[in-house]
Amino acid sequence: MSDEQLTKKERQELNRQEKNNRKANEERAESFKKIGMAIGLVVIVVGIVWAVKASRPSADEVIDVHPDPIEGPADAAIVIKEYSDFECPACQALHPVLQDIRKEYNGQVRFQYNDFPLSQHKYSTTAAVGAECAFQQDKFFDYHDLLFDNQETWAAVKTKDEATEIFRGYAEELSLDMTAFDSCTTGPDAADRVNEDYAEGISLGVNSTPTVFVNGERVTEVPFSKTIREAIERAIGAGAQSTVSGEGEDDTSANSNTSDVNDNADAVVQ
């Protein structure tokens, strides 16, 4: 009798345990599903974003929407495209390096400046607008040099008005037509150009300044004095090889690269 009672109790206990187990299992399965759902969705969203980011056209696929300031022969085999911010110290540091490189490869390279003003810099957009307006009077590179050479001065001022006054001063220094300069800086066109440059940079996946493209090849590694020269040498090598043989996978891709950039060059010159 007591045996039977015990087994009955045991049976009840067992039943309860089984029930609890089943419940725990169900709950576990439910949390797995829910957490899995959340993780899955996050992975999908991040994946889509990453794919969108990665599918952006590469440097040689984008054709400029408007002429950019250019230095060097229009038919140069090497095109250096810089995305830069006048207020960024690293861009200032790159400035003399690029000047040296342009001198060194004089006649072989074409240098193209693009604005990429970062939002954390207070006056870089205003500076870029000023430079665009100097560009309209064919004084872009002089103005660009002044901005970089005096970056510490104008970047340190307290208000935008002071900065604007300094930028006006540079235009006067270069004896620009001040009426045209003023109407340009206050009008929407120059700002639109700066924004277009920025959008173009974003579409190329530019995410830091300075970003340099040598014939479409993105150069981000420092020291730039070394890496840009290496990229130029590679581009020259690829050009020479493709004219000699015109065969092989590497050669053809390098070839198409160059021709694409040349297409860009035409678009820019027009």
Binding site: V49, W50, K53, L118, S119, Q120, I202, N207, S208, T209
Partner: peptide, 8 residues
């Protein structure tokens, strides 16, 4: 944020 340049 994911689409913008991460540096910013």
């Amino acid at each position: 944020k994911a689409l913008a340049p991460l540096d910013q």
